[in-house]
Structure formats: C-alpha cells, structure tokens
C-alpha cells in the first residue's frame, strides 16, 4: 500500500520552454495538419503570436523532466504496474511557441480500491507562463495495479 503521508506532497517547480520544432513534431505525431499548429506565418495570420500549442501539450513539459519515473521512485512503485487512469486540463490562457512555462505540481489524493488491488494517485499541477499568468491546471490520475 502506498503511504498516504504523501498526500499534499509538493514537487519542485519545473520549467519548460514551448519550442517550435517540438510543436511541429507533436502535430505530425498526432496527425494534426492545420496551419495554426504547423506553419508559423499562417498562425500569425490567424492572430496568434506564433505556433499554437495543442490542448494536450501540457502533459509533455513535466515528462521532459522525468516526472513520472521520479514519482514512482518516491512512492516505491514498479513502472510495469501502472496505467494511465484519467487526465484532465483546465484552460485559462492560450499557449504558443516561445512561451516559458512553470509547472507546480502536488499529490492531491491517494486512494485504494478493490481492497488494495488498485491504488489511484492523483496529482494536480498549476501551469503559469513567463508573464506570471495562469495558463492551465492539469489533473492526472495514475492507477497502480497490485498483482
């Protein structure tokens, strides 16, 4: 069982720059071909300061800092036993290439289900940009399957 003392644990702030090349690669990988996501001139013509970041990109910032392996190590969980349970995003301001984001995450819940056969870890992460504006809140639930 995961020790519930970790509920409330705050992670160090992670900084992540939204890079143009990364956005184009991400768009290609998900089959997104619309110009505001792939062509900077077209994005500008559509009123964006640069390429528009797609709705799920906020998941990638912390991943680049190995947030999941570090979380599993902290809680003593085997990578092979986890599944992605739920994912949610709240959007407060648009995100574009060139933005430098800060991620402030914490563990908000640890719950056992099915008599401990399944444990759910919930993290909530506030994301702000280089102007100090809140751009989003990310909610992530990892399911740990204890076999």
């Amino acid at each position: 069982m995961i020790d519930t003392k970790w509920i409330g644990h705050r992670f160090a702030t992670l900084r992540w720059e939204v890079e143009k090349g990364r956005l184009r690669f991400f768009a290609k990988a998900i089959g997104e071909t619309r110009p505001e996501y792939t062509d900077e001139e077209a994005a500008r013509a559509a009123g964006h300061p640069s390429l528009l970041a797609p709705p799920t990109i906020l998941f990638s910032g912390p991943l680049d800092h190995d947030d999941v392996p570090k979380l599993l190590e902290l809680l003593g969980i085997n990578m092979n036993n986890i599944l992605h349970g739920e994912q949610g995003f709240e959007y407060h301001a648009p995100i574009h290439a060139g933005d430098v984001l800060e991620f402030d995450g914490r563990i908000t819940d640890i719950t056992a289900k099915k008599g401990g056969a399944l444990e759910l870890i919930t993290r909530e992460t506030r994301v702000t940009n280089q102007r100090g504006e809140l751009v989003g809140v990310v909610r992530n639930v990892i399911a740990v399957v204890n076999r």
């Binding site: 991400f26 990988a29 998900i30 089959g31 997104e32 619309r34 528009l52 797609p54 709705p55 799920t56 998941f59 599944l83 992605h84 349970g85 739920e86 994912q87 949610g88 995003f89 709240e90 959007y91 648009p94 909610r139």
Partner: peptide, 28 residues
Amino acid sequence: GMLGMAWVGRLVTQWAPQRALRSFTVRF
C-alpha cells in the same frame, strides 16, 4: 493513452476553435 487523448483533442478543436476550449477531461 495520451495519443488517444490528442486525437480526441483534434475532434474537439475541429468543431470549436481551441481558444474557446475551457476544460477537457478523459478517462482511459
């Protein structure tokens, strides 16, 4: 899972512009 969520995101943003999106939550 996040590849699927990104595809669902395409479904939503082809119906409404992304600037109109306020929240997006899925269960795998």
